[in-house]
Amino acid sequence: MRASLVLQPLRTARWTLAALAAGLGALMLAATSTYEVFGGAQMLSQLLSRMPRAIRTIAGDENMLTTAGYFGTIFFHPLALTFKGGAAIALVTKLAQDVETHAADLLLSRPVSRVELALARYLAAFAGVGAVIACGALAFLAGRALTPAVQELEAAHVIAAFAYDLLLWAAITSVGFVAACLSSARGTTVSWAVGFAALSYLINFVGQLWKPMEPARRASVFYYFRPGMALAGSAPPAGYLAFLACVAVAGVLLGLLAFRRRDIAG
């Protein structure tokens, strides 16, 4: 695997990535450093009881009355999802863009196999999302150092929660990767990737609000993501981790197979 095939899309998207990483970092820093403003569990309980159920459901399965649960919800914050999703989409769609613009012709008319090219593009997307998430983790740890109430969460557990987040995004990115491997247009890939992430989020959200839809939550990758557990220091169910890992690996393998067999025609 030539490092330049991984680094080239990262270099191209460096300013976008920097902006997204700064955004996620700012969000994490703001969330941790303002925690004490809410006045602890009792005040939060009163605040939450006045909120409509649909708003409270954004917190997912997290118990917001605990510090770990409160910060578990920050991973589902629309801005956090936008920053991480933006990084994933900006990079994972590069492969389809290469086909669309005929840049792939120049790369594949060299001693570069299709599998090498596609895998490099996935790794670039994974690294880009990882960099954004790492920036979020660092900002969280910085906010924790500044706010005594957040220090209840151990640094190792914070890192574990962000690693869990990376696993979730590896799975989401791999589904976008399948779309990129099948498509000859970046726009189509963006639509499929955003569509998958949005649908997955919606299934999980509606499943919490409406009892008959509850079993459908298992079809959503967000169902298997419980960052509050990781922040509290208890290991998430192994099945949840395995599911996300399987989606990530299966997506990559399916994408590689599809890209290997398809015609490269922009």
């Binding site: 191209t12 613009t101 840049a103 012709d105 120049l106 008319s109 001693p111 922009g266």
Partner: peptide, 21 residues
């Protein structure tokens, strides 16, 4: 067609797909 053969090939495409930036 594949990497082994392409190692000895130089190609000028009809549609130039360069990285613009």
């Amino acid at each position: 067609p594949g990497p082994e053969a392409m190692a000895r090939v130089g190609y000028v495409p009809g549609d130039l797909g360069f990285y613009e930036q």
